[in-house]
């Protein structure tokens, strides 16, 4: 835990989830001005999220669609078990 106060941890989660109110954000900002732990915690989480979103694009290999189409059962059966 970065800070003794659970309250600020909740606010940080809310901020990262985009669910924080303007009032709460102001309160969190005020707190983070003096609390280095919370500030670090917040920025570290933000960085992780940014990194994940920026993760280099992965695309399906060549001939993917072709291969899937080849794999489909010949006649689509109405009641095949889902497994």
């Amino acid at each position: 835990m970065s800070c003794e106060s659970e309250e600020y941890m909740d606010l940080i989660d809310k901020a990262l989830d985009g669910e924080i109110t303007a009032e709460e954000q102001a309160e969190l900002d005020r707190h983070m001005e003096s609390c280095e732990n919370c500030r670090e915690h917040y920025h570290a989480l933000k960085e992780i999220i940014f990194e994940m979103k920026e993760a280099s694009p992965v695309v399906a290999p060549a001939h993917f669609t072709e291969n899937v189409m080849k794999m489909l059962p010949e006649v689509k059966k109405r009641s095949m078990p889902a497994q």
């Binding site: 992965v58 399906a60 993917f64 669609t65 899937v68 689509k76």
Partner: peptide, 24 residues
Amino acid sequence: SGNREAFEGLVEIYKDKIYRLCYR
């Protein structure tokens, strides 16, 4: 309604997303 070819369209639309999810 039994049109196999239409499935190709769905694979094309979602192949990257589904492959990426599986890869991750």
